[in-house]
């Protein structure tokens, strides 16, 4: 999870992945520059809305392009991708979007706060300060619907996973696993050390247009809230009144 490793290929590789998918690989490492570029490629391809392309799926260092081979041939598709790659360089400055996720740290929501404190040697308020003081880059969504792979956690917070994973972790739980941090998007088993919980819904299957809160390619910042604020935001989320806090600036 160490970004910015200078391992971006000069020319991205287009790799076949069956008869209906190609992978455009920008790097063989987790690399923020590669990821930002492939998010650009995805946006360009979506703007062009090329007939036959089903969807583009960003991952850490590649973009999977799924297509219908009866509507667009492989050579035509590759040519389209190459043209899109050329226009990445020409794009104007990128916008940097940041999503704010309110988190109630510690207490019943953060049952592993103490073990993280013991492992890192930091008091609880310092853990919260460092966890809320960083901007996290969302490389991709995956693992479960709406789960964001975040990069950029303060390395002093790194704590290994639990030896005995929990059978059920409530959606919204904020955890640490090694040098990664993340938010459980659906109730699931897992071994991450839980330090807090957000009242926001990371995955809402009832919301057809925007079922996920996070988006690949945007930044995430955590904001500490009290259990009281947690309860009031939760109420707003349930009644549909809550609008997630987002800011945009030129990147």
């Amino acid at each position: 999870m160490i970004p910015n490793s200078d391992q971006v290929y000069e020319t991205p590789k287009i790799l076949g992945s069956g008869d209906s998918c190609v992978v455009v690989e920008f790097s063989d490492a987790i690399d923020m520059e590669a990821n930002i570029r492939l998010q650009d490629l995805r946006r360009i391809m979506e703007t062009w809305s090329v007939p036959g392309i089903r969807e583009c799926v960003p991952t850490y260092r590649s973009l999977s392009v799924y297509y219908n081979p009866l509507k667009i041939t492989r050579p035509k598709l590759e040519e389209t991708i190459r043209r899109a790659l050329e226009s990445i360089g020409r794009r104007a400055e990128r916008e940097r979007r940041t999503l704010v996720i309110p988190v109630s740290y510690g207490g019943e929501f953060g049952p592993d706060m103490e073990s993280v404190s013991n492992h890192t040697g930091l008091p609880e308020d310092e853990i919260i300060r460092r966890h809320t003081n960083a901007d996290y880059y969302c490389y991709m969504l995956g693992f479960t619907p709406g789960f964001g792979y975040l990069g950029g956690m303060d390395e002093s917070l790194a704590t290994p996973r639990l030896r005995n994973p929990r059978l059920i972790i409530p959606a919204g739980s904020v955890g640490i696993a090694g040098n990664q941090t993340g938010v459980y998007s659906v109730d699931s088993p897992g071994g991450w050390r839980l330090i807090g919980r957000t009242p926001l819904k990371l995955f809402d299957p009832g919301d057809d247009a925007n079922p996920t809160l996070m988006e690949a390619g945007e930044w995430v910042r955590f904001r500490g809230i009290s259990p009281g604020e947690y309860a009031s935001i939760l109420e707003d989320v349930h009644s549909g009144r809550y609008i997630p806090e987002r800011s945009a600036e030129a990147g």
Binding site: S17, C21, A29, V57, T59, Y60, M140, G142, F143
Partner: peptide
């Protein structure tokens, strides 16, 4: 490898060297 996309039919070969063909409910990455 560093996680990347999984196409339908992708044949993953994990540590023990036996193939797994990814089917309809394959995870996305």
């Amino acid at each position: 490898i560093i996680s990347d996309g999984i196409a339908q039919g992708a044949v993953q070969v994990p540590g023990r060297g036996r193939p797994i063909v990814m089917m309809s409910d394959r995870q996305t990455t």
